[in-house]
C-alpha cells in the first residue's frame, strides 16, 4: 500500500529530456500535477506520448531532467518512486497463462501487499473495473477490452499516487469507454492521472487539464471544456475541427448548425470553428444525412505563430 506524503505533489517533472542518438524524443518537459488532476496528453502517432509516459513510469531513464513521484526521485530511488506509480502500457502487460484474480494477486505481492491486504485490493479493483465476472477466467481467453480492464485494475492495485494510462481506451466499445471515464473520475480523487490518446474525444470525457505533444515537445495546454463535472468556465472556448462528409456542402449549410462560428472550405473538407461539444456537432451532421467521414480536432493552426517555433510551454506554475 502506498501513501504519498500529504504536502508533496504526486508528480513533479523538471526539464525532462530524452535523447536517442542525435534524435530528441522528449524535449524539456516540465510538469506539476496535484491529486485530482487528470491530464490528457494528446498528439499524433509518433509525437512522443508513449515515450513520455515510459519516462514518467521509470521504464525509460531520461537523458536529462528530474522526475519526482510522491517526493521520490525516479532516478535516484527508482524502487521507492515506482511503488507510487500505476502504469497501464499499450498494450497492457499481462501474464496470459494465469487467471485474472491470480495475476492480480501476483502483482499485488510484487508491490509488497500481504495476503489479506492483497485479497482486499484485488476484490476492490475487480469491482472498480467491472471484472468480477471475469475473475476466474484465464487472461489468454479474454477479449481486448477485458485485457485493457485487467491492465487498469493492475495499475490501480496498490493505490498509486500517480496513474499513467497509455491509450487506455484502445479496443473498448462505447459503453466501456464511458465506464472507463467514470472509473478514472472515481480514482482521480486520490491520485494524479495522465492519460495519453490521439483521440481528443476520449480525453474530454474525464480530463480537467489538456496538453498536446508534437515531436516530443509539450506545445499547448488548454482547459478541457467538455467535461461537465470539471467544467469551471461559464462559456466554452471555440475550437477548430476538420470535417469531411460524403455530401457536397456549402458554407451557409454549415453555418446554420448550432455552435458553428465560422466555416472555411479546405482542399478535401471543411475547417470549422465550433463552440460546443463535438459529439453534438457530429450528431447534427448525421441527422442531416450528410454522411460524416471524418471529424478531427485541429489543435494547431498550420503556420500559426508559436505552433512549432515556440519551445516547450511549461505546465509548472510560475513561482
Amino acid at each position: 500500500m502506498t501513501t504519498p506524503q500529504t504536502d508533496t505533489p504526486p508528480l513533479v517533472v523538471r526539464q525532462l529530456t530524452l535523447h536517442r542518438g542525435q534524435a530528441v524524443i522528449v524535449a524539456d518537459l516540465a510538469l506539476r500535477l496535484q491529486t485530482g488532476d487528470v491530464l490528457g496528453l494528446v498528439g499524433a502517432n509518433g509525437a512522443g506520448k508513449s515515450t513520455t509516459l515510459q519516462c514518467l513510469a521509470g521504464h525509460l531513464s531520461p537523458s536529462e531532467g528530474e522526475v519526482w513521484v510522491a517526493g521520490h526521485n525516479l532516478v535516484d530511488a527508482p524502487a521507492s518512486a515506482r511503488a507510487h506509480i500505476g502504469y497501464l502500457p499499450d498494450p497492457p502487460s499481462l501474464h496470459n497463462e494465469l487467471r485474472v484474480s491470480r495475476h492480480l494477486r501476483a502483482i499485488a505481492s510484487l508491490h509488497g501487499l500481504k495476503r489479506a491486504a492483497s485479497d482486499d485490493a484485488v476484490a476492490r479493483v475487480l469491482e472498480l473495473c467491472r471484472l468480477t465476472d471475469a475473475a476466474s477466467k484465464r487472461i489468454a481467453h479474454l477479449s481486448q477490452g477485458y485485457r485493457q480492464r485487467v491492465g487498469l485494475a493492475q495499475a490501480l492495485l496498490h493505490q498509486p499516487a500517480v496513474l499513467l494510462l497509455d491509450e487506455p481506451t484502445n479496443g473498448l466499445d462505447l459503453d466501456s469507454q464511458d465506464q472507463f471515464a467514470e472509473t478514472v473520475r472515481a480514482v482521480s480523487a486520490h491520485c494524479a492521472v495522465i492519460i495519453s490518446s490521439h483521440h481528443l474525444s476520449d480525453l474530454r470525457a474525464c480530463c480537467n487539464r489538456m496538453a498536446s505533444l508534437t515531436a516530443g515537445r509539450l506545445i499547448e495546454q488548454h482547459n478541457n471544456t467538455l467535461n461537465p463535472r470539471r467544467d469551471t468556465h461559464a462559456g466554452r472556448e471555440p475550437e477548430t475541427v476538420f470535417i469531411r462528409v460524403h455530401q457536397p456542402l456549402d458554407v451557409d449549410a454549415l453555418q446554420c448548425l448550432r455552435g458553428v462560428v465560422s466555416a472555411t472550405a479546405e482542399r478535401d473538407g471543411w475547417k470549422i470553428t465550433y463552440r460546443g461539444d463535438t459529439a453534438e456537432l457530429s450528431q447534427a451532421i448525421a441527422e442531416r444525412g450528410w454522411g460524416l467521414r471524418q471529424l478531427s480536432p485541429m489543435l494547431f493552426e498550420p503556420g500559426a505563430a508559436g505552433a512549432k517555433s515556440t519551445p516547450s510551454v511549461s505546465l509548472e506554475p510560475a513561482p
Partner: peptide, 14 residues
Amino acid sequence: QNGALNCLLMAPVS
C-alpha cells in the same frame, strides 16, 4: 515477446 516482462520491470523490485 509477449510483453509480460514489463510486469516485473515496472514493479518496485530490483
